[in-house]
Design a protein around this nucleic acid. Structure first.
Lengths: 341, 341
DNA sequence: CCGGTTGATCGAAGCGCTTCGATTTCGCCG
DNA sequence: CGGCGAAATCGAAGCGCTTCGATCAACCGG
């Protein structure tokens, strides 16, 4: 043990070829006779040769590493981030790349650092906000990147996220198929709509479109993200002349209080009222009684984000926006519409 | 925009010094006059110079990257892993290092790959098992490593984990202070004790020691990790002549079923019976009613693991074993001992 | 007043790999 | 049968940085 580290010249000597030939065998960038290739590969195996990553990066100006910046914000669901990260690593490895982990905390400087030092070839940034300060930076960097989420101005960038439009549609379809005729959407706080935030608008659009398609009546109610607002909303919905028989909720903190308020008002779920949430599985499963929900397919997003990045690295064309189809899981909070009394 | 990338020779020219001087300013490995240093630093700032990571790694044979291999096993609690990873990244950055993320899936080969290619200077491996195949590898690698968890044979390695002995003691102390005189430990499956698994033995030791210290009576009951075994255990404990008034549980899958079984048998918790678990906070909080528990301080472990690694990288001495003190959180499952009837 | 330090800087030799001509050897068409 | 392109391989020039003597000036005490 403790032998010298094997370098390309060792392999070359052992195989009776020049170092450049070994390199070409490894990269496949020039044709090499089958005979020579085999001999070189055998030497590599026998000597246990492993190219020096730094040397390779220096000579080729490719590090085969991508940066992944994960969020720390509370309010972000940890298991979702983890699923995403694991999927990203797995997919990156499949393309012979590694993943360098950065935290949101590092912010713009962190991204600049790893990009400018040629430590990474490309970047993935999670939890992108409407006015994210990292967005302009990414635009100026000479390295490709993929954003998870859509900023206000996504021009010149590649973004991917759950297809919120389709998510809302899936909720309404699910309810329509259960016989509901009047549904409500409890959405984001009014402010979010005023800012014309992308995902909120898309949910609203999808909701309206599906309501129209299935011939339902449906009303959108913006809602503050507090328990009080949730209770008030519940009261308002129940008092309505044409009270809906089903509610779609797209406002995480409101989900639980709303459900509780309905129950407190004597409504059984899903007997009297069905509830469908757009939220991470964790939230839906951890509820008092598991909720029917549409979730973020984190693994799928992670995989695709890396695939997009790889395509960009190879100079291929990629769509500016990728929308990942939602997945609806029926749980205990949705059921057939109550028979009109 | 699109100017040339700045390299060390550019900085040198701009500051009127040689490249080596710039290098020494950056590394501090030779004394540089204050005047020159300032001039060089100014040039660096002005030109926006960022050393090329690959070139640096090649010349110095230090990449300033550490590998972190995270577990995928189901049964591992995701938020714990995440907390750990974030703490590791944060701490590593404080020491001017980055973190390369590997998944357990990559296994031994993954570790060998990143170590042999000089991609990383050191490695952290989570969720180490008694007979972990990665352990012998780590011993032969020429790069320092830190293991989270203790393998059967930890000789020559640096390990860190929760101090299970102190954890058990903390549980017993907590119960003793609440006036309990007879306690039971529901532990790991018998097989685990037969294999003389480190953490299980340490829990048992701590339990025995604390029981003796506080003058209690206490019995250790190994328990299979199934719901049936939990129910049988509950029945057995309750039928006991000197039935304990408090139970310490160190067996994750058993926690919930056991509590349910007690309740089903008409015992109120903590009115008739106190329960303290050694498990991740997530499990304790997500229980039907939150459980008093001792948790793995994941962040602390992550931080310390990196600190140990950095010390090793600098050639400093580190303890072979580091035990992180437990943290007990009192929740709704423990209370004063019932008054004897 | 001079050999010997010490402090500050420079020059050049790599680090291990990729890549770009250049070279050699064939096979093959006209 | 001469010449030419394609296939296979080699040699050497970097990639951008660190580091190891070497150099040179200033300074010390005897």
């Amino acid at each position: 043990m403790g032998r010298h580290v094997v370098k390309i010249t060792d392999v070359a000597r052992h195989a009776g070829v020049s170092p450049s030939t070994v390199s070409y065998v490894l990269s496949g960038k020039r044709s090499i006779s089958a005979e020579t290739r085999e001999r070189v590969l055998a030497s590599i195996r026998e000597l246990g040769y492993r190219p020096h990553a730094g040397a390779r990066a220096l000579a080729s100006s490719r590090s085969n590493v991508v940066a992944l910046m994960i969020p720390l914000r509370s309010g972000i669901h940890v298991p979702v981030v983890m699923q995403f990260a694991v999927a990203a690593v797995t997919t990156a490895r499949r393309h012979d790349h590694d993943v360098l982990l950065l935290t949101q905390e590092e912010g713009v400087d962190g991204l600049r650092r790893v990009a400018d030092s040629a430590m990474v070839d490309a970047l993935i940034v999670m939890d992108v906000q409407m006015d994210d300060p990292r967005v302009p930076l990414l635009r100026t960097l000479d390295r490709p990147s993929v954003l998870i989420g859509f900023p206000a101005d996504a021009s010149g960038l590649t973004c991917i996220d759950l297809d919120f439009r389709a998510a809302a549609e899936a909720c309404v379809r699910h309810l329509a198929e259960l016989g509901h005729r009047s549904v409500a959407l409890v959405g984001s706080p009014p402010e979010v709509y005023r800012r014309r935030t992308g995902y909120a608008e898309r949910v609203a659009e999808g909701f309206r479109a599906a309501v129209a398609e299935y011939g339902l009546t449906g009303v959108l109610h913006p809602c503050e993200s507090t328990a009080e607002a949730a209770r008030a909303m519940a009261a308002r919905l129940l008092a309505d002349e044409h009270a809906p028989t089903a509610v779609v909720v797209h406002n995480e903190p409101v989900v639980e209080p709303l459900v509780r308020a309905f129950r407190a008002a004597g409504r059984s779920i899903p007997g009297d009222l069905s509830v469908v949430a757009i939220c991470p599985d964790e939230v839906a499963e951890r509820a008092e009684r598991p909720l029917t929900s549409v979730t973020v397919p984190a693994e799928e997003v992670g995989r695709q984000a890396v695939e997009l990045l790889m395509t960009k690295l190879e100079g291929g064309p990629v769509p500016a926006a990728t929308l990942v189809p939602p997945r609806l899981t029926a749980r205990a909070s949705s059921g057939p519409a109550p028979v009109p009394s």
